[in-house]
Design a protein around this nucleic acid. Structure first.
Length: 435
RNA sequence: UCCAGCGUAGCUCAGGUGGUAGAGCAGGUGCCUGUUAAGCACCGGGUCGCAGGUUCGAGUCCUGCCGCUGGAGCCA
């Protein structure tokens, strides 16, 4: 029997419509993930880019081909699809024909344990592994569901530039690039441009990479990371918190519904994720400080929270915690001062549970020209570079608010990862940027 | 940038008080009709990160350098 008339199928289709295809002859193309043999029966686990499926070989005529095949060899398998509880997918292929399309030798990543240094050096191959495969498919879905949510809410995607002529939060964390002889920087936030967008289109967001030249070496930091930054005209701090809560909850519930296979590959306990529904817990900065003190931590009122403080606060809650009204002097110039207490600003951070730290930072923006100008002067912001930003308060100014959500931290939390580096295909870190 | 830890076979690691290198996996050869990172037997595989020092003798002790990992600050 030759492989001539083929019904080429993929494992995603088998997962979704396996029952209807039971007993049918199918062909899949993919790569050998692992092989096992036991006397007169042989097993081949094939990955086809959509998932993993076990193939069973009982026909002795195929044994020589099976013996020849090695891990990560490219092959085509034809056989009968059948349901079987002993197969991890619930379905398996009883092989009738096996063809090697490319023979791989000495594939470096074996099914046993590897250290992180080795795996990172082989990132281009590591992404084929089961866990990485699941994570990066979830990343894709997270981005999709965020866009889907924002689209339903009436947002338009309004792209901020990557090259920015001036710094907004201090130049020490910016990457300088040469722009035909002029100094330019890689964007570390699209926010200021989103504010221009919000006053033109009312509800906008940008979604893309941002760059921070911070010499951070922790499980929560990347030099290049992706951020979604919605900005809304006529929205107060309260309004923007609601949007953030709904966006996070919507995305997580959609992931549980549609990426259950991937969550299973990751052995993620989804019960904790099911609880993520609005409203989240909301506390003020001052209340967060009380929590820290009640836990016996030493903390000076007025300081910013570091990651030990964030963890201490979030471990008391089973859902994200929204912390609002931080002291003015630890927050940037564009945040609106709390009219009820001039020492605080109308901002919010959202701290994820399970120790994943700050995933969202946002605020109501200063909409008064004079106050904004004053604050920019206080913080030595080069006014001439920001005249366009001040213009937004000069022509049709309006209350507006926005926030930024870090995709890798969000994905790391959903997948319960040890480190954000696995939440992006090719992470850029302090001393690691290859491949 | 600072603090801490690690660097031994292709990979993951073990190698009291200094005496000249070991296991599992991967690879190779066999055996076993239902394996789940299968199992069993046998085989091949080493500049012990680099440079120097102490010593009769260093994987082991000391110094410097390099690389990696985690944490802090900063942040999403």
């Amino acid at each position: 029997m030759g492989i001539t008339e083929k019904i080429i199928i993929d494992t995603e289709k088998i997962r979704k419509e396996g029952k209807n295809l039971e007993g049918k002859q199918v062909t899949i193309r993919g790569w050998v993930w692992i092989k096992r043999s036991s006397g007169k029966i042989r097993f081949l686990v094939i990955r086809d880019g959509k998932g993993f499926i076990q193939c069973v070989i009982e026909n002795p005529d195929l044994f020589s081909t099976f013996d020849e095949i090695s891990q990560e060899s490219t092959c085509e398998v034809q056989g009968l699809l059948k349901e079987d509880k002993r197969s991890p997918l619930g379905f398996e292929i009883l092989v009738q024909n096996l063809k090697i399309l490319f023979k791989t030798e000495d594939y470096p990543i074996t099914p046993k344990e590897h250290g992180i240094d080795f795996l990172m050096d082989h990132r281009h191959l590591w992404i084929r592994s089961r866990k990485q495969f699941a994570i990066l498919r979830i990343r894709h879905s997270v981005k999709n569901y965020i866009r889907e949510f924002l689209h339903k809410e009436g947002f338009i995607e309004f792209d901020s530039p990557i090259f920015t002529p001036s710094a907004c939060e201090g130049t020490t964390t910016l990457f300088e690039v040469d722009y035909f002889g002029e100094k330019m920087y890689l964007s570390q936030s699209g926010q200021l441009y989103q504010e221009a967008g919000a006053l033109a289109f009312s509800k906008v967001y940008c979604f893309g990479p941002t760059f921070r030249a911070e010499r951070s070496k922790t499980r929560r930091h990347l030099i290049e990371f992706w951020m979604v930054e919605p900005e809304v005209a006529f929205a107060t701090l309260e309004d923007i918190i609601n949007i953030a809560e709904n966006m996070i909850s919507y995305t997580i519930q959609k992931i549980i519904e549609n990426n259950y296979y991937e969550l299973q590959l990751l052995e993620r306990n989804v019960d904790n994720l099911r609880k993520i529904t609005p409203p989240f817990y909301r506390i003020r900065y001052s209340e967060a400080v009380e929590i820290l003190k009640s836990k016996g931590l030493e903390f000076n009122f007025g300081d910013d929270f570091g990651s030990p403080e964030e963890s201490a606060i979030s471990e008391s809650f089973d859902k994200p915690v929204v912390i609002t009204h931080y002291p003015k002097n630890i927050k940037p110039f564009y945040m609106k001062i709390d009219p009820e207490n001039q020492n605080f600003v109308l901002n919010m951070d959202i701290i994820a549970p399970e120790g994943y730290g700050e995933i969202v930072g946002g605020s109501q923006r200063e909409d008064n020209y004079e106050i904004l100008l004053q604050r920019m002067k206080e913080e030595n912001i080069p006014i001439q570079d920001y005249q366009w930003y001040l213009d937004l308060r000069k022509y049709g100014s309006a209350i507006h608010s926005g926030f930024g959500l870090g995709i890798e931290r969000f994905v790391a939390w959903i997948c319960k990862l040890e480190h954000v580096r696995e939440a992006i295909p090719f992470p850029r870190m302090l001393y690691r940027y290859r491949p």
